[in-house]
Structure formats: C-alpha cells, structure tokens
Amino acid sequence: MAEREVRMFVFYLCFGFLTTISSSPILRSNVKPVSPVAVEEQLIWLSGGGEGEVDIYRTPLLTATPRGSLLALCGARKYSSGDAGPKFLAIRRSTDQGQTWSPTAFVTDDRSPDGFNPGSIFVDEITSTIFVLYVHCAHHYKCNVSTLFLINSTDDGLTWSHPRNISEQVGTMTFDPGPGYGVQKKLPPHQGRLIVCGHGDLILSGVFCLLSDDHGNSWRYGGTRMGIPYNQRKKAGDFDPDENQPLELPDGSILLNARNEYAYHCHCRVIMRSYDGAESFPLEHLYFDETLIEPRAMASQWYSNGVLFFSNPAHQTERVNLTLRWSYDNGTTWASSLLVWPGPSGYSAMTMLSQDSGHLYILYEKGAKSSIESLSLVKVALYGG
C-alpha cells in the first residue's frame, strides 16, 4: 500500500474514533441501571464424554424463539478439537426458561474430512422462521470450494429443513458466518431486513455481511471492510477484523463488534457502525475499543432497554476471565463488569427471552484446565438476585 494511502487509513481510523465518542448519546433518564448477578448455571455439553462419535463441543450458538423457547447449538467435532474435520450441528431446546433441556439432537452431519463451521443463527420474527447459516469447507484443508448452506425451522426448532445451497446466489468466496447470531432490522432503514455478518479466510480477510430483503429466500453481499494488506496472507500487526457480531441500536443503525485477529493497534476489539442497514461500514465510523481487551476469540453483544451488553474472555493473550460488561451509551463507555468465570473460557453467545427482560443468558466455553472442556449456560439476573 502506498505511503499516502496508509496515512489516510490511519487518519480515518482516528477520526472515526473521535466522531463516535463525540456523537454518542448520553445516558437517558428513563434507563434503569442494571446490577447483574449470576443466579443459575448448568452444564449443557461436556466434551470427551463419549457421546457417540463426538470428541469436542465448541462454538456456542444461542437464540430465543418466537414461541418463547431457548435453543442452544454448537459444533460437535467428531474426532479432534481442531477447526478442520467432520462435525455434527448439535442442538438442545428448553421450553421452561432454561430450567430443563431436551436431549442432544444432531441436526446436520457433514460427513466430510474438512467439515463445516457452525455459523450464525437468526430469527425472522415476521414469518416465525429460525435459520442457521453455516459454511462447508471453510479452511480448504482437503477441499477446494467453500459452500454456504442455510437450514430453517418453522416449528420452534423441533425439526429442520434440508440444507439449501445459497452459494448459487452469492458465489463460493470463503465467507464464514459469525459465529453467533444474525439480526432482523426492526427499524428503518430497510425494516425487516435479515443481516448475517461474518469474515473471510486467511488471504481474502475482513468483515462481510449478507443481506436478505425477502425473508431469507434470496441473498446478496452488503457492507464489507477488507483486511490490509489486501489479498495477501496476514502477519502480526496487520489489520484484519475477523469473527464478528452485529446488532441493531435504537436509531436503526447496525453496531458490529469484531475480533482483531492480528492485534492491529491493540489487543482489543474493532468496532464498526452502519447507518444504511449494513450496506456499508464507512471508515469514519470505525474505531478500536481499548477497554474491550481480547485474546483473539469470538465475543457476543446484546442490547435491551437502553443497555448494551458485551461478553468475552477479558485478557489480552489468554482465554480466561469470561466477563460481562454493560454500557448505557452504546459502548462509548462501559459502566461496570461482572466476572462470570475466572478460569479458562473462550467463545460465548448471549440471548434474552422476549417475555423476560430481567434475565440474560450466556452460553460459553468453560473449563478447569482448558476452555474447550464444556459448554455451560449461565443465567444472569440483570437487576440483582
């Protein structure tokens, strides 16, 4: 990249940070302060437990359904803990606010040496359809073409459709959804739009978003923010936003929180904002949140009743200290935090039931010696125990 382009890139990053700080709303008087307390926790999956062919349960997905159930999903890795290799998509379901759970069911079986990545789960509230978008052959170890598949359920997660290949619409460029959840816009612009964001591969890296304006029937690419250097293998210090999570704020904008894969600028999260329904993520709305330190891992964010929540392993280099933070000004400042688990902890996913705005659910990777020992669900009372 030419020297002038590098200077302009840094200028826009700095300007975006200042713009975000100065334009963020102040705490509204009608926002009720939270005082989160972890009130319940239970083991959802235990790795190495000899359950069929499964060796490791990783990469949690969590959502609430239109009927008020909770769905927990993950990648059930058959033979090893590595990202590559065949997997099942495992699922459990709760109809009593997380008190009890159905036995594990395996929704998909990739039967492939390279395997799939679990991807993103999202709900179309208008049609009451639950979707999971996942990629097959994300790592190109033993296959050459990546394929995006979409499955859906219209009966509260009890049964699922056959996988539908949407690469016929968007191409076979490596796009790894999430992992986490996609969103449906509730506000203008593009009210009702489905948005699923993800990342590229080791070469063509960066953030990419897929958009659907017809309830998941057709898809196209929307906003992107490419890694630098473009189309080259990255190294330490390069700019490479990776695994990410979108959400919609009360002004209709999309807030995207991304993993900072090669620690450009800091060991912290990359924040982007879109005001056109994820059609674009301009540089003037991109900054680095140095409070949200990270060891390069999936993180989750959630918004409810004027409060933005964020969960990740809060450490610069190690996957430990699974922490919940909260903000009253859309992430400009962070009011406080709750240490959920001080030991080994990795990826996390959050959700909330529409009929219960007083509790937040976090499904996360947890262990005593390693973060991949189990997937555990913690129920957090937002206004005290």
Rank of each mutant, 00 (worst) to 15 (best):
Y361N: 05
G343H: 08
D329Q: 10
A349L: 01
W334I: 06
L286F: 14
E318H: 12
A349N: 14
T291V: 15
P295L: 05
S304G: 02
W334R: 04
L286Q: 12
Y347P: 10
Y364W: 12
Q301D: 07
L324Y: 05
I293K: 14
R325C: 06
P342N: 00
L324V: 07
L338E: 00
N312D: 13
F310W: 15
R319D: 08
S311W: 00
S327T: 11
P313D: 05
R319M: 10
E294F: 05
T317V: 12
N305P: 07
E279R: 13
L286M: 14
L286H: 11
Q355I: 06
V340R: 01
A335M: 04
T317W: 06
Y328S: 12
H285F: 14
E284P: 09
E279F: 11
V320M: 11
V320W: 05
L353F: 07
L324W: 04
N330G: 01
W302V: 07
D289M: 06
Y287S: 12
S300Q: 06
G331S: 12
Y328V: 05
L283Y: 14
D329R: 05
S336H: 04
P282R: 05
H359N: 14
P295A: 07
P282V: 05
S354M: 03
Q355W: 12
Q316W: 11
L338G: 00
Q355E: 15
G331L: 10
A335W: 03
E290M: 07
